[in-house]
Amino acid sequence: MQSSLERAFTAIKQFTIEMIPSCRAVAYDSNLTTTDLQILHLIHLTKEPITASKLCSLSGLPSTNMTRILDRLETNGFIHRTSDQCDRRIRLIETVPGKVNQIMAGFEPRKQILEGELSQCSTAELERIYEFLRKITSIQGLLARAEPTPILEESQR
């Protein structure tokens, strides 16, 4: 019989695995690769302009891959790049809100199901869930920076 710790770890791995087809479907519907979608989501989460080098640092992708991804995202209208006002050599990247909302609509059915489940939790349970997810996200970020594992584009697999 598995310990509570083993059961929790197994559940986390299963949750992660179950997310892959959902992300792939939303990416496909938006004419993106899953890596494009991940980078777009990363840009969106920053809520402020970000540089390509910072995206490389956060994602573990080499700059050549990042350039191709950003070119595709810009060509498809999901992001726009502008020059930094203090240093015109620096290009800042931002999402185009309307286009991101289109992609987020692809997650809406999944979001509604999750909201239905979460609405059955007490405030205290939701706070514990939030703290747990925040903690494992932070740990995962530390692990990724300690041992960067590049995200490969589908065409490289």
Rank of each mutant, 00 (worst) to 15 (best):
F132R: 05
E154N: 08
L45S: 12
L40I: 08
S53N: 15
E94Y: 06
P97D: 14
Q14L: 14
R89C: 09
Y130R: 10
K13Q: 08
Q2D: 13
P109S: 07
I69V: 15
D29A: 14
Q85I: 04
V26I: 04
S119E: 12
G60Q: 05
D71Q: 15
I136A: 08
K135M: 11
Q140T: 15
E74F: 04
M104Y: 14
L40H: 00
Q112R: 13
L92P: 04
Y130P: 00
S122K: 04
R68P: 01
I151F: 06
Q156A: 08
A146F: 05
Q120G: 06
N76R: 12
F107Y: 12
T33V: 03
S53G: 05
T46H: 05
T75D: 15
L73S: 05
Q85R: 14
E115W: 03
L143Q: 11
R145C: 06
E125H: 02
G141K: 04
C86G: 01
R24T: 14
K54D: 03
E154G: 04
T123G: 11
F9Q: 05
Q140Y: 15
I129A: 01
T67H: 10
R145N: 13
E6Y: 06
H80N: 10
E108W: 09
T16P: 00
S59R: 02
L61R: 01
R145A: 15
A25K: 14
E115C: 05
R128G: 03
Q85G: 02
S59Q: 03
F78G: 00
G98H: 04
L92E: 02
V26A: 08
I20N: 00
Q120N: 11
E153R: 07
G98C: 03
C56H: 01
S119W: 05
S53D: 08
K54H: 09
T82A: 04
D84G: 06
T123L: 10
H41M: 13
T51L: 03
A124Q: 13
G98F: 09
I43K: 00
Q85H: 09
C23Q: 14
I20H: 07
I43V: 13
F132L: 07
A105Y: 11
T149A: 04
T123V: 11
